[in-house]
Design a protein around this nucleic acid. Structure first.
Lengths: 358, 358
DNA sequence: CCCGTCCATGTGACCGTTAACAATCCTGGC
DNA sequence: GCCAGGATTGTTAACGGTCACATGGACGGG
């Protein structure tokens, strides 16, 4: 990098003109009067280089602004230091925050981060993304919070280093790939129990779409909700909702608002909850007066809604970071194969106005 | 070759076992009985290859599942087909949506997308990101909506292909780099004028941080707001707000709520507006009854707030797409140097409950 | 004093691709 | 029948690193 500055004459920057072609290992060798291999050894901290030689080479490296080419390194079979994040979306809060976590950790480790968005769960589409990721050479990190991501995870070829950020796996099942999750099932149970504790006869659930193919399995959030009701001897009502956004929540909310038995609602995420709040408001049912509402994910703005939204805080950034760490362990195996599944800090139920005691 | 006689079905996939090392151009050459260079010619659609030869090579390519190595291509000096997006944030709506737009367009063009997050506007930090981007070989796309991004844009070395997504440039100034923006200044003027038209004596402004170094220049949104007031002969009150998020809006809102002359508020983004709404609510001032509020960006959930938030819809995805297109023109120059500055569709003022007539 | 080792360094090949140039074959004009 | 010249193909050398191995000198033990 042609950095300017520098106390003494701008020794680092190539003279004044354009930035000529970057210096190679051989350029450094020539100037330092050694062989290119010696330069390589210096770069890689190989022990048997005379201190004097090492210093001289280092000086030339600084002088020429030499930077080792990642491309050449990769071609020569060196370690690759790159991750590609596969995701179906980059704007939804949970996804964006997970990506952010991955990026932070990757940057700290000197990895580059690629993003490939999955348009659908069709094989062709997934393979396209996988191929793109594979020929970058590094590992793949799949955000598998939804059906598309889960489908992509299934198709990752066995030779490719891969980890995933997932929902909490259904009881006892160990994910096929090293994975990271927060126990949202337990959190859903807790949130539901809290609502029941407030005196509600039952709790309705506005679901996020299932991540299992064909929606065979409900999401862990739905499972936790169901369990809490069953523990309390309550027959779970039919979950509603189909979608991820406020609009879907609004539509589900319109139906719920018409049902007088609805006094408590758990939502699969905060966007859905927002739509539900809106629908309840329009129907003249007050929150938390008539209906208590709890969301999921604790998006940053949820605390400022009116009423402020109770929610389950998920450490998405932490999940992203942990997932990257797992991937890194796979790529340069320092001490044997590390853990293959990780559960990060338990989600935390944050109580606000929307679920105050009545 | 363990490949049995596939009619056509899975002709492409490597046999059944593990995925052995990817086939190279020379592997293809050997099997097809030609030189590697001929294979290269076939891949690149070079005209002088006998059709018969071409077909044979193509068949072997399919049979071996050959894919040209992007790494080797880059090393050999071929075109790189990669973008690195430099941004200070990936979770804020405008940023995430811009990134999404870039990714869509890049994917369609067969480019890979990298992301590098800028922690601060310190030179070292920026150079780190720039260096990382540069040695990926492709172009750089800077999201320069804030001070950090703008600082990064300044330091991009002249030899590096680069475009930027920016705020609308201050009157007449042509951005140094090919850039894309929506005319948010005009939109702010329009929104302010609309509020004045509602009968408000003045309009207060909750500002997003300026993107100019040292905050020497106000953001175009602030400029548009000021212009509209001046056009109407109103002396602009002091803008408030320091930050991007709902919390900052809330704090600004607390102060505004105490001031009885405040009856209309324009906010630099929807998160700020959300905080303002909350603060006004807590102070017992109704929206739009006592105070009208208009936000900026039209985040997806703004329509579902209570009251629903009037906002200026920005086509961030479109900006991202256009910025990528501009970068692409730079990377493989087909018809001379293309346009260097682009203004995408005009932002649209979306009126909702928060700014109804009184 | 000779030989085996280790240290420091150099030489050459290789990774997978493209570019430049050479070589061969075929065709047509004279 | 000879040669210019295009079409087709092959050969060799980059690109910028790493790895495997060779080389030469210093040192120490027998």
């Amino acid at each position: 990098m042609p950095v300017t500055g520098h106390t003494r004459a701008d020794a680092a920057a190539p003279p004044e003109g354009e930035q000529r072609k970057a210096a190679s290992i051989r350029d450094v060798a020539r100037v330092a009067g050694v062989s290119h291999q010696t330069v390589s050894r210096v770069i890689n901290d190989h022990p048997s280089v005379r201190p004097e030689t090492r210093d001289r080479v280092h000086a030339v490296i600084a002088q020429l602004g030499f930077r080792r080419s990642a491309t050449a390194l990769a071609l020569a079979g060196g370690p690759v230091r790159a991750v590609t994040v596969l995701t179906s979306n980059t704007t939804l809060y949970g996804y964006a925050a997970t990506l952010q976590g991955v990026e932070e950790e990757a940057r700290a480790a000197g990895f580059s981060v690629g993003v490939s968005v999955l348009d659908s769960d069709e094989d062709a589409d997934i393979d396209r993304a996988l191929a793109a990721a594979a020929d970058s050479g590094g590992g793949v990190l799949v955000i598998a919070y939804d059906r598309i991501g889960a489908a992509a995870l299934e198709r990752v070829p066995s030779g490719l280093a891969c980890t995933a950020a997932v929902e909490s796996p259904a009881g006892g099942r160990i994910p096929a790939r090293p994975s990271v999750w927060a126990d949202d099932r337990a959190a859903a149970r807790e949130a539901t129990a809290h609502l029941l504790g407030l005196g509600h006869a039952t709790v309705h659930y506005v679901a996020i779409p299932s991540s299992s193919p064909g929606a065979r399995r409900p999401s862990p959030r739905a499972a936790g909700w169901r369990e809490a009701l069953q523990d309390a001897g309550v027959t779970p009502p039919k979950p509603c909702g189909k979608g991820w956004d406020a609009r879907a929540g609004y539509q589900a909310g319109l139906a719920l608002a018409r049902d007088p038995t609805v006094t408590a609602v758990l939502c699969g995420n905060d966007d859905l909850a927002l739509g539900v709040l809106r629908a309840l408001h329009e129907a003249g049912r007050s929150v938390p007066g008539d209906v208590s509402v709890i969301g999921f994910d604790d998006a940053p703005h949820s605390a400022y809604l009116t009423p402020s939204l109770s929610s389950v805080r998920m450490d998405f950034t932490g999940i992203g970071r942990a997932a990257f760490a797992l991937l890194r362990d796979q790529l340069d195996p320092p001490g044997a194969a590390a853990r293959s599944a990780v559960e990060v800090a338990k989600p935390e139920l944050v109580l606000r106005e929307s679920s105050l005691a009545r």
